[in-house]
Design a protein around this nucleic acid. Structure first.
Lengths: 257, 257
DNA sequence: CCCAATTTGTTCGTATGTATC
DNA sequence: AGATACATACGAACAAATTGG
């Protein structure tokens, strides 16, 4: 049975919002998880005693939060869904769309998270994983000659960081690093940062990555940390001269590094 | 004019989702910001050539993401809204509800972010801000005698960290620290962590906070960083013995430290 | 390939609630 | 108090998608 809903202006939520919250806590109370099916629309209409439109709006609210997915047809219905990283990234991105973030702000965080990640991974990666990282590196074995090549290389380097994060056993660290990498990638797309090829950035980038891989393979955590700390310092310095304020956009979800 | 919508199975989004995305990019394209009013429901129905229900579901999607708010009555309508920290916290919390986070995971992040924050704030706080922090400290000038007192003190200490974050000029750092503090606060509420009063935690907590305030006042960034690093190490150790896996719940939005 | 059943998706007309003037 | 301009909610009908026979 769904939690009762006080119909007489309980706080200030619209009915669909109340229904959405009620369903949410109902799901939690019953211990339902990803893949489990919610009662059908018709059922919900009956249980909550509300019109179809109201119930549908409630479902849409949950869907927008990434908590459920619905399918039509027999065997269809509304299903509890694990919030995807893409959805979480998009939703959090909406928040920062309205915040005034600077390059300094972002790099202040990167400068502590990335070295921490590197240190945590040292000696923990399989040979397969290390190979995969080397693979990405080959994407910029040549210095960029055009702004477009530069942009592509920068995105590849961000993908390198995202892959590294993917290998972390810490879901929080993983999400944060990937989220930040996505924000930065988004900027290069929308603002054409790096208008001119920057040979210095390329050289330092390639160099640090090979040294990092060596340190990771050797299991030298302090060295891995130091390498990434230096690199972040360098990348920060090089980015700062080009732009100080990040312009953001709404992320339509889906495009993720 | 709103962006045209391809009606014949464009990707796989339901129509309300398409409309929501269309409105979103329409708002961006027009440079609308918080407070600006979207066209009325009737207008949107006409512009998009869709039924009321569809439009309403689209609005609900945007509302769930925290991007718009709607008011009834004359002068009412749907307004662009800056995504609130509460909303962003709740939405991101939904993501981690499905992730398996351990105390170690959370403290790995805290251990680098909190010291960074402290270092950044050293010498930057006004006397008023320092006083406000001292105010919160008085909430635990006495060691807790009951589990309930212990819980309250722990929440007060988390609020101390949240306040500190609030004073940071870095919106990203601010959000992350407050988000994590909220997750931890949520745990003490839902799982009654700290069942037994822990005198050691209290003593070390009170001690580090007064030393931290002194360092902040003196503008000694390295010292502030070190103090918080030590404290995080200590807090981590003390928490680890009590619980290893965090159980989470959906955050109904609103209750934030 | 088509048909039937099931479930969500969409439409429209109408009525109600709410805040402003 | 009443008129107005909005969003909000209801209900019934119809459309589309998916699955299985």
């Amino acid at each position: 049975m769904p939690p009762a809903i006080t119909r007489s202006t309980p706080e200030r939520l619209s009915r669909p919002q109340q229904v959405a919250e009620a369903i949410k806590s109902w799901v939690m109370a019953n211990g339902w998880g990803p893949g489990d099916r919610l009662p059908s629309e018709t059922d919900l209409i009956a249980r909550f005693g509300m019109a179809k439109g109201t119930i549908r709006e409630a479902i849409r609210i949950l869907e927008a939060q990434g908590l459920v997915k619905s399918r039509t047809g027999p065997g269809g219905g509304v299903f509890v869904h694990r919030v995807s990283e893409e959805r979480a990234t998009a939703l959090l991105g909406n928040y920062f769309y309205f915040q005034h973030l600077t390059i300094d702000d972002v790099y202040q965080i990167r400068a502590v998270l990335e070295p921490e990640l590197a240190a945590a991974l040292a000696g923990k990666l399989t040979e397969t994983q290390l190979r995969a990282l080397e693979e990405v590196m080959t994407g910029y074995s040549e210095p960029a000659r055009t702004p477009e090549e530069e942009r592509v290389q920068h995105l590849a380097s961000l993908r390198f960081h995202a892959m590294l994060a993917e290998m972390s056993g810490n879901p929080l660290l993983r999400f944060l690093i990937r989220f930040i990498a996505n924000m930065l990638a988004d900027i290069t797309v929308s603002r054409k940062l790096y208008a001119q090829p920057n040979r210095e950035l390329w050289e330092s980038g390639l160099d640090y990555q090979s040294r990092l891989l060596a340190a990771l393979r050797a299991g030298d955590a302090p060295l891995a940390r130091q390498i990434l700390a230096d690199h972040m310092h360098n990348a920060h310095r090089l980015m700062r001269v080009q732009e100080t304020v990040l312009t953001q956009r709404f992320l339509p979800e889906g495009e993720i590094i």
